[in-house]
């Protein structure tokens, strides 16, 4: 069984937010809910200033603390390492939101928000509520576009290689800063990049072993 993971090359990322938009579009995420974020800023002082860009998403840890603390089993880890939430089981206790060291979970509690306040829902939002109905009072987060991966695998496609089976943020990434693939396959590009370019994880000290690696500048 594969263990899906992602490598993000900081040197390649240009901070265009295409991944953020693609993710919102793919999952019809309501206002205020982001599964994918891009952090852009500057460090240093003039004239030695450098631009810092960090795309951030759920790390789909190998040893996820969110799965351990969930009292209902709503948050669970699939055999392929992807951590997902069953909205029908989530009770909204927010223990997972508190426990995630990466603060990548959102408590969705305001289903009245509109993209254009006071003007009603757009056709996009109406469709989203039908296709990806988030439940008020539950927690939500990135799924690595699990529905694309599953559908792609059924068709014999390879996630990370075939666009149809690859997460939307990876497809949308213009400079190809994101690479998706099987972390347990040494010949896969993600494994190769992590090994050759010394990919690093966020906060390794928590022992969660994230599946998202960053290649430093």
């Amino acid at each position: 069984m594969a263990r899906w993971g992602m490598v993000i090359d900081e040197k390649r990322c240009i901070g265009c937010w295409a991944c953020t938009i693609a993710c919102k579009q793919e999952h019809f995420l309501p206002p205020g809910v982001f599964w994918n974020r891009v952090l852009i800023g500057e460090s240093g002082k003039y004239p030695l200033v450098s631009k810092e860009i960090y795309p951030i998403l759920c790390n789909h840890c190998r040893d996820p603390i969110c799965v351990k603390v969930c009292p209902t089993g709503a948050t669970y880890q699939r055999d392929d390492g992807i951590v997902v939430i069953d909205y029908d089981k989530c009770i909204g206790c927010r223990y997972c939101v508190i426990a995630c060291p990466y603060q990548q979970r959102t408590f969705y509690n305001d289903d009245k928000k509109e993209y254009f306040p006071g003007q009603g829902l757009t056709p996009f939002e109406v469709l989203g509520k039908k296709l990806y109905p988030l439940q008020k009072g539950t927690v939500t987060k990135c799924t690595f576009c699990v529905e694309r991966i599953d559908a792609g695998l059924k068709k014999g496609l390879k996630p990370g290689v075939d666009r149809e089976a690859t997460p939307a943020c990876v497809n949308a990434c213009v400079p190809k800063a994101r690479v998706f693939g099987d972390l347990d396959d040494p010949s896969n590009e993600v494994s190769r990049l992590i090994k050759e370019k010394k990919g690093k994880q966020f906060h390794g000290e928590f022992g969660t072993d994230p599946a998202v690696y960053y290649l430093a500048k």
Partner: peptide, 13 residues
Amino acid sequence: LGKPLRAWRVLCN
């Protein structure tokens, strides 16, 4: 709780 009617599920883990 966000979903109090499902509170019984707390006993699952």
